Amino acid sequence: MKYLSKFSTVLGIGIALFSFGCEQNQKAEAQNFTTPNSANKKNISTATADVKLDKIKLPENFKIEVWAADIPNAREMTITEEGVVFVGSRQEGNVYAVIDEDGDGKADTKFILAEDLQMPNGVAYKDGDLYVAEVSRIIRFKDILTNLNAPKFEVVYDKYPTETHHGWKFIAFGPDGMLYVPVGAPCNICESEEEIFASITRLDVTSPNPTPEIVAHGVRNSVGFDWDPKTGDMWFTDNGRDMLGDDVPNCELNHISESGQHFGYPYWHEGAVKDPEFGDKGGPASDYVAPAAKMGAHVAPLGMRFYEGSMFPAEYKNRAIIAKHGSWNRSKKSGYVLTSIDVDGSTASGEKDFATGWLDEEAQEAWGRPVDIQEMKDGSLLISDDMAGVIYRVTYSAN
């Protein structure tokens, strides 16, 4: 469960999304969720993927498999109690529903719920409805599980900025029931006149006329966040600016302790690096919230989730697991890994690799790029990969 905290008075109390079992076996719990045939349904039980799982290194007794193949440009995921996994994309423009109908630990079915959307990276599920974030709007598929074969959406809000630079969005419902929506900076580095840029907002999707409320400023490009199950506080990843060299600045893991805090962009990076173009326009570094942890330069940390299950060893309980998508223009590539980090109150420490091997260090070529993490009901982890177009499943067994 997620509990009441100081931040909860502003952003609401935390909730647990699932009740996790103690199973240690390699199979997912039977889903008991079958779907009728339809034009937008495809059998993917025999789909294959060009992946190199033998290259992936995990801690002892962990195992990685392809849970679903043929999921082009798989990005953010959200999951229902029934085990239905909704997946957004960025370049593909599609939204998928992916289902393990026979409960054997691998997906059998893919529904295409929408096509030709504008960077529908973000997906979130609440009270039977699926929410999808495009660049400038939030759309909703009502009662989606009974409408997989004939999905229709309505527009919840369509006045987010239209700029596509950092315009794709990661979304999630907070413990206060609000939908959290980041708005990235419309540039590598700039000072925008519009306050909504470089922020994290929240939206009351139950309102007939929702209006975004800014809860964090100075956030260059967050594509992942979650709430600490122990305190209810919000934590988010943030991608640092480019063109200051291979090793500066670090990408960040940040902690919000109260609404309205400013995290430094575009004036300061990683807490103590003054921007050469805009640093003099801001205040001293002490005016801004420094990161709780530095993630490495240009590693592009995206999805992050706190592990709340019981399948993994006890040391993973409540640790944050973070997908580092990987650098795009560093002279020597960095990232392309999953790491875990311990969070205690407002501090984060002890980051260590959890899964590596998507990057061939010697050849400097990547065959996959992890994007997001979701926890299944049995405590196993799903990992999306937009480069390989797959979703992996990581399990643990001490036997």
Results as ranks from 00 to 15, higher is better:
252 E>M: 07
11 L>F: 09
30 A>H: 09
212 P>F: 02
320 A>K: 08
211 T>C: 01
233 D>Q: 08
79 I>W: 07
45 S>K: 12
279 G>R: 03
303 G>H: 04
336 Y>M: 01
76 E>A: 05
92 E>C: 09
309 G>A: 11
80 T>A: 10
191 E>I: 03
344 D>K: 14
194 E>K: 14
283 G>P: 07
173 F>L: 05
386 D>W: 08
224 G>N: 01
240 G>Q: 07
196 I>M: 02
16 A>S: 15
215 V>A: 05
27 K>D: 12
116 D>H: 10
252 E>T: 11
113 L>D: 01
145 L>M: 15
369 R>F: 01
309 G>Q: 11
322 I>G: 02
129 D>H: 12
313 P>E: 04
176 D>I: 03
165 H>D: 13
147 N>G: 07
371 V>L: 10
292 A>Y: 03
376 M>E: 09
232 G>R: 05
63 K>Y: 05
90 R>F: 14
270 E>R: 04
398 A>E: 12
14 G>M: 02
106 K>G: 00
354 F>V: 00
303 G>L: 11
177 G>F: 13
205 V>I: 06
236 F>T: 05
96 Y>L: 05
224 G>P: 01
107 A>L: 03
364 Q>P: 08
302 L>A: 13
223 V>D: 02
177 G>N: 14
72 P>N: 14
17 L>K: 12
332 K>E: 15
